[in-house]
Design a protein around this nucleic acid. Structure first.
Lengths: 249, 249
DNA sequence: CGTTTGATTGACACGAGTCAACACCAGTGG
DNA sequence: CCACTGGTGTTGACTCGTGTCAATCAAACG
């Protein structure tokens, strides 16, 4: 039953109406998958990837390290996300991608991409859309880092992850796996590990977040969204689900 | 002699070899220009733009305002930059664009873009490239905001602007116009106006930056680059010019 | 001239970083 | 079976970068 490419299809369905044939095409080009253990790099800075890759299972992230050894996580990749859709144009990766949890990655050969291009304009449009949504996410992060205090930043991150996991069909309720260590969370938010710890506890104490091991629950998503100014529109996923329940603006 | 589209051509030349015919095509589609006064919005959040727009003169920026009225500047647009190349896919702008200084903007009708697509694959490739470089800039900013103290952030901003102005042929030396108010700089860097002032003075005192009115000079670009960890590679402009002169790493 | 916008300065408060110690757990090997 | 290990999470004390508030100054402008 389970099909590696499902999250991708679920995600794309938010932008275009996929025909049955399109789904078949996608399954076909992304047939070859690879497993990667947590902590391993999937693509490294400087190389020109030979494949186009899609994450099909697990958590991964884009990151860079500065000269002083500090690491910054530039984005979090969830099932259905492409990593290197367009490196062909730039010629090389200017950042690396690594597995946060154990992952499964589909590798699509260049030629297969080309054939996709010829055979399904709908898919191509969906690819474009995915790229542009990534851009929108970057803009939102920029906003986050620049203008919101750490507590809201972190809450915003949780909201985004939940919304994206819902979008790719990985999660239905308001509980989701969250394999990042606190150090990694610090690298995402640009704050120290110690501070991550304290901020997280603050959110828990306020009842906005529940943590059990490496899982997170947002008992009242709409409340959290309000707290941190999360507005799912930037993800361009269409109808927003339960995010706006108590919206009173 | 002066041609509105020159900065665009200069910029594109970094990614592909443009034929004379390509330049002609560009001049043709971007013939229609519009002047915008400093402070005026050029495209506003929520609309679906009717044209594709390129900045041909002046400084502009993408921005959003939060509910609490705070404004964040998401990117700075310089001559040769597109604002809304791909909104057609997403359907609407999720941020606004406003003129920082007096600007000139070229407006390219949709159909003209389509014809470009058919007539010059080189130009299309260059457009892709421009989009992806924008992405790279966002990643770099994310790095900046997250991991560098304000002084280095600001220095990095100056380096980036100078490099980009050089790339589009607007500047040859190491002095350039910089029309941002300190408040706007704060909105870019995510710090308060007061702090902008102090940080700027710090850079000046260290001799890294010279300011005369609304112009900035970096007397020793390589030194500034070293100070803030600026590495022009992410702009994908090819040979780096004088940035690495004293590079000793 | 007042008025306004932007730049500058000082005093003070607070968020976040740093350093250091300790707790907890899973894995490993004796 | 138990000590040892390394990675992660937790906590406290202290420092420092940045924000906030408020006043003043300078230049531009009607």
């Amino acid at each position: 039953m389970r099909n590696a490419i499902n999250p991708l299809i679920a995600k794309m369905a938010h932008s275009v109406v996929l025909m049955h044939a399109d789904e078949g095409l996608l399954e076909q080009v992304a047939a070859r998958t690879r497993r990667v253990r947590a902590g391993q790099d999937i693509v490294v800075e400087g190389v020109k990837p030979d494949f186009v890759r899609v994450l099909t299972e697990g958590y991964a992230c884009r990151y860079r390290v500065l000269k002083d050894g500090e690491r910054a996580i530039l984005s979090i990749l969830l099932p259905g996300d492409f990593f290197d859709l367009h490196v062909q144009v730039l010629g090389y990766m200017d950042h690396s991608v690594t597995a946060i949890s154990d992952c499964e990655v589909a590798e699509i050969p260049q030629e297969a991409m080309k054939s996709l291009q010829d055979r399904s304009p709908r898919i191509m449009k969906a690819l474009w859309w995915a790229t542009l949504v990534d851009d929108a996410i970057w803009r939102e992060w920029l906003l986050n880092m620049g203008r919101r205090p750490a507590e809201q930043q972190m809450a915003h991150l949780f909201c985004e992850i939940l919304a994206r996991l819902q979008a790719c069909g990985q999660v239905v309720g308001n509980e989701f796996p969250f394999p990042l260590t606190q150090e990694q969370m610090g690298d995402v938010l640009g704050i120290s590990t110690v501070h991550v710890n304290r901020v997280l506890q603050g959110l828990i104490k306020q009842g906005l977040v529940i943590r059990q091991g490496r899982r997170i629950t947002l008992p009242h998503p709409a409340e959290v969204a309000q707290f941190c100014g999360f507005d799912a529109v930037y993800l361009h996923l269409g109808p927003a689900g339960f995010w706006n329940e108590q919206e009173a603006m």
